[in-house]
Design a protein around this nucleic acid. Sequence first.
DNA 1: TCGTGGTTACAAAAAGGTGCGTAATTTACT
DNA 2: AGTAAATTACGCACCTTTTTGTAACCACGA
Lengths: 110, 110
Amino acid sequence: MKSRVSRCPIEEVMQILSGRWPTLLIYYLKQGTKRFSDLRRDNPTISHKMLALELRKLEDAGIVTRTEFDGYPLRVEYELTPAGERLVPLIDALGDWWEATSDAGVPSIA
Amino acid sequence: MKSRVSRCPIEEVMQILSGRWPTLLIYYLKQGTKRFSDLRRDNPTISHKMLALELRKLEDAGIVTRTEFDGYPLRVEYELTPAGERLVPLIDALGDWWEATSDAGVPSIA
DNA sequence: TCGTGGTTACAAAAAGGTGCGTAATTTACT
DNA sequence: AGTAAATTACGCACCTTTTTGTAACCACGA
């Protein structure tokens, strides 16, 4: 999804949150500051390329901060911004909604 | 995104809502019952293949109902389920969040 | 030589677009 | 009256575009 079709804010958010990783990364980052390698350990199936790309996307969107500590082994920390923290409950609400609807069986009949 | 990496409900919702179309279709369907061709007119850049696929996905997820009226030119109507209507405010909240954070300028400095 | 946090190039996989076919009936034209 | 064409909501096959994975490389030190 490289370009937008409307100027709607909803489409813009979905452009950022779409895909497997963004919400998962936010989920792990709400536990606190994480380093690149921490996030790779948290979900081992992401490739380092994808992790780098997704983190950049979240950074550009103002959801995470990237802090580089220059030193010997080179250390970078990722953390949710205040805006990112405000996003967390909204994502959780989606998860809750899904749990509720799938618990209710087939909603098209009920 | 064909398979899941965890059993997390958030990942499951994102599997359904990811991409350009799902939220847009829900947006138009909250205006009321729509037919296939209505939805194509609402957003002209979707192909009929994509529209059919996305509608099936939303149907399987219990977000929309598909009602087939068999007749001469064949008529099918799509409508939000109660669960789908409960989802609408959550999506709107994401849009509002995005508007608020992007209005605030660059959040990484502010 | 390994670990850190990447970038780049190439390849594989997935997503998406295009156009054709379909069924049944109305309408349009001759 | 007979024929052709249009409508509706797709499914299917083929092909292009986009996304993602893989692997290699980088610098810097312990």
